[in-house]
Amino acid sequence: MSGAFAFVVGTIPFLWQGLLMTLYVSAIVVVLSVVVGVVFGVLLAYGPWWARWPLRAYSDILRGTPLLVVIFTIYYLLPFAGLNLQPLPAVLLALVMFKTAHVSEIARGAIQSIPQGQTDAAKAIGLTFFQRLAYVILPQSVRRFLPPWINSVTDAVKGSSLVSLVGIVDLMLAAQQVIGRTYEPLPIYLLAAAIYFVINYSLSTLSRRLEARYAYIRE
């Protein structure tokens, strides 16, 4: 067992590289999807019909499709659209599009949960549309947005393992390759599971902190 232990320790640098890829993919997906998703959410809530309808369709279709199918569809469709992306950007695009669909729905729901009276009061003191969003609607939406969004972020971290499908070495694929060489599945999988757990546990801790910070309504 001590031999196996040495093996495991020896694989750590390789797993570390995989972990960095997982964090890199997750970070890109989370940041891009929240920026674009909130804009989409605002458009879904307030936009004219010609902005709402396509976004509604986009969000509904992608949310109703398994991530794996989204990835392969985009991966194999891109060349037909004249886009020859490398595997990593192609999968990143698919992950971002998928996550954005979820975030826009979460953002729309959060925005529309704010009572009409808030908009009325904000209008009555003369705030313009963007001022109402920035100072009244969005700050209040954060409270509703955070819990489902953090769920969705942890999903994104888990979903990032799908980049391994196109041969990119993330934590998941690194673990599998190490197992292929060492024939020690249990400790390696345990280690990988522990790492995923640490990432997602940190995220949910962060989320509880944020929620507490925005819990200005003491019901």
Partner: peptide, 18 residues
């Protein structure tokens, strides 16, 4: 917005910013 800024309104349900 400019017109509303010069007209104040107070609401039945207060509508304070929570």
């Amino acid at each position: 917005s400019a017109i509303r800024a010069d007209i104040g309104m107070v609401f039945q349900l207060f509508n304070l910013f929570p």
